[in-house]
Simulated assay, not measured.
Amino acid sequence: MSKGVLLVNLGSPDSTNPKDVKKYLGEFLMDPRVIDVPLWARILLVKGIILNTRPKKSAAAYEKIWWEEGSPLIVISERLQQKVSEKTSIPIGLAMRYGSMNIKKGLQELHDQGVTDVLIIPLYPQFAMATTETILVLAEEIRAAHFPDMTLSDLPAFYNKPEYIEVLSKSIAESLKDKNYEHLLFSYHGVPERHIRKSDITKSHCKIDGSCCNTPSKAHQFCYRHQCLKTTEEVAKKLNLKEGSYSTSFQSRLGFDPWLQPYTDRTIERMGKSGIKNMAIVTPAFVSDCLETLEEIAMEGEEIFHEVGGDTFTTVPCLNDNEDWAQIVSNWVNEWSDQK
């Protein structure tokens, strides 16, 4: 069997034009693992409401963070792909779950190079229905329909792998070196609470009650909340952070259903009002900077903090195409490709 790897990230509109943004949002929000309601309700919500109101606002947000070369998330992912390719001896493909750089194209490119055994690497440290799961389910559907002779395997969530914790901790330490901050906030992408319960393979463990994530369980293999809290815990340990000097929050909620709490925007506001003048924020649910980190956190978050009296708001970049991070991904690829 000829081996190859497909790195998969979230995706991006082709441009900041509202039409392109609308097309992208339509694909993203109609995914039943993103908005997991019956099809009729999803159509009503997405096509009847969101796509008539949100594209212009989202396009303006993308406009603020767009690079000359294009979408930051795409450009950064391509840079990472290039670096990993240079450190490995098998084909390294790149695809996005949503948008024109789709998974079918990514698998086709590997197929055209004679690859029959593919390792899918979802570029998300923590498992979630709306990230890892939707990638793997779609990849298998595409394989069955178009590449029946291809075999797929995947890299499990790496939220607690020592080498990942090491590189993330080092990146945070370097970014905050010589920075004066009183509190470090770990902000993860939010998901509805029901996603946590749906992903519970025990069907009984996840109660989101403050204790279940700390009680050993098979459910943790697919529990996004547990994995986020564990990432924070491991990094705090590695950086010797004092109790009370760091915390975890969740950003980017949508709709009226309960999402994971505490919410990032309200946490930032609360910190500023409580007298904290200097805070730092890191976003470990993402390995590549994107709209959620560059605009929602670095711009909107800072604005909230200043409005309530805060002074310095320091944003830690994602791992992006950091050399150490590229080396770790390459090591995972090489370990897999060396297996019989």
Rank of each mutant, 00 (worst) to 15 (best):
D31T: 12
N9Q: 11
M299A: 05
I74Q: 06
T314Q: 09
D112K: 00
K203P: 01
S199M: 15
K273E: 13
G310K: 02
R79T: 10
K23S: 13
M129C: 05
S247T: 08
A285V: 02
N180P: 04
E174S: 14
P156M: 10
G275S: 01
L136A: 13
C228E: 10
M279V: 15
E78H: 11
S85V: 04
V287S: 04
T151I: 09
I120F: 00
N9W: 01
P72Y: 06
E233R: 11
N278F: 11
A298Y: 03
K179I: 11
L254G: 12
E78A: 02
V46L: 05
S249D: 01
G99I: 03
F158W: 14
D321M: 06
Q81W: 06
A298K: 12
L107Q: 00
I304T: 08
C223L: 05
S217T: 08
Q82A: 15
D112S: 12
A60M: 10
D149P: 00
L29N: 13
K230V: 10
Q227T: 06
W67Q: 12
Y181S: 01
L51W: 14
N322P: 05
G255Q: 06
E78R: 15
N278W: 11
N180L: 05
F28W: 11
S71Y: 04
V287A: 08
I74P: 01
Y62M: 01
L254C: 10
I281E: 03
K218Q: 11
E109V: 00
N331G: 11
T202G: 06
E174H: 12
H205I: 08
N331P: 00
S330L: 09
P32N: 15
K177S: 15
S58T: 15
E233P: 08
A139P: 03
L119P: 01
S85A: 15
S245W: 05
T264H: 03
A41F: 15
S100K: 15
Y246T: 09
H146N: 14
K47M: 11
N102S: 05
L291K: 02
W66P: 11
G309R: 02
E335M: 12
E69G: 05
F147P: 02
E166L: 10
M271F: 13
Y164K: 04
P148H: 10
W336C: 08
P192N: 11
I276A: 06
H189I: 00
L241V: 09
T293V: 03
A298E: 14
E233I: 10
A285H: 03
P55L: 13
K237M: 11
F222P: 01
D324A: 14
H189M: 07
S153Q: 08
D265I: 12
G310L: 05
T53Q: 12
G114D: 05
D324L: 07
P125Y: 07
E174F: 11
V118P: 03
E303H: 10
G99T: 08
Y164N: 04
R270K: 13
K104G: 07
K237D: 12
L168M: 15
Y181G: 00
C290F: 01
M271I: 02
E243K: 15
I90S: 06
G275W: 00
S71W: 07
F305Y: 15
G275Y: 03
P13A: 04
L185E: 03
L51Y: 13
M129T: 12
E307A: 14
F256S: 13
T53G: 07
W40H: 12
Y24H: 12
I121Q: 09
S175K: 07
